[in-house]
């Protein structure tokens, strides 16, 4: 508990988390507003369509989470941290927990903000949260952000440099997982089992809406599992990354 409080103090006494939170919310909710404002009878506003911008928030959150740890290495405060708390596993887990909680809260704010602003701009649209699919599409965003933040912290611990960690995370999430499917024959099968495909599946997944129009929500993910197991798979990947990161941090000279 003490360590959680410490990491909370550390996180919020610098500027980058505030900026990142602001940008994440502005981009997702702003994009939600844009989608709502431009929706018409041809492309009506749906619950899923309010969440188009969630990937904006996702990448910004991952940048924030990576920076939370890489700036400690950059400014040497990681050594001050390890002097105060020599149990490195505890110190890093506390940081991961705080960052993940913040990411989760921001995810819920972003998702319900986007949904709320859609309701506000287009009160006539059908935006009721009825099906499990619709609930996951909105309330699930926080869970995905939280898990993604854990992955980003782990990568940050392993790489230690802001530029490297951010480049690796963004290129992986936005490029590698997509380009993989271009490999003939095996590409699609690999793609189906990649972690962020799984997280997208949790947000956009069937079984409720399978034949919807492209304009009705973020692209459907072709993942190897159904939504909830997909989230577990995504979380499992995060846990594995974190375990590797902790093992490395414990063995390495600070």
């Amino acid at each position: 508990m003490t360590l959680l409080a410490v990491e909370r103090m550390k996180l919020f006494s610098t500027r980058s988390p505030w900026w990142c939170s602001l940008i994440a919310l502005a981009l997702t909710v702003g994009f939600g507003a844009l989608m709502a404002g431009t929706a018409n009878t041809e492309t009506p506003l749906t619950v899923a369509a309010t969440q188009f911008g969630y990937t904006f928030g996702l990448v910004v959150i991952m940048v924030m989470a990576a920076l939370a740890i890489t700036t400690e290495y950059r400014f040497g405060t990681i050594r001050a941290t390890f002097l105060a708390v020599p149990n490195r596993g505890k110190a890093l887990l506390a940081k991961t927990a705080v960052v993940a909680i913040l990411a989760g809260v921001l995810g819920e704010l972003a998702a319900f903000g986007s949904w709320g602003i859609g309701k506000l701009i287009k009160p006539a649209s059908d935006l009721a949260l009825n099906t499990p699919y619709e609930w996951r599409a909105v309330a699930g965003v926080g869970l995905v952000y939280a898990v993604a933040a854990v992955i980003a912290v782990a990568v940050g611990v392993l790489v230690r440099h802001s530029a490297g960690a951010i480049a690796l995370l963004l290129v992986y999430v936005q490029l590698v997982e997509n380009l993989v499917s271009l490999i003939p024959r095996i590409g699609n099968d690999i793609h189906r089992w990649m972690p962020f495909t799984m997280s997208a599946k949790f947000i956009t997944g069937d079984p409720d809406v399978t034949l919807r129009n492209i304009n009705e929500g973020p692209p459907l993910a072709d993942a190897g599992l159904s939504p909830w197991p997909a989230l577990l798979y995504f979380a499992g990947f995060a846990v594995v990354m974190m375990v590797i990161a902790l093992a490395v941090a414990n063995r390495r000279d600070a």
Binding site: K10, S13, F75, T77, A80
Partner: peptide, 15 residues
């Protein structure tokens, strides 16, 4: 120099 440059002296000691 093992201090975050954007943190105040007090905040650094507080955590």
């Amino acid at each position: 120099k093992w201090v975050h440059p954007n943190r105040s002296a007090r905040a650094h000691l507080q955590w």
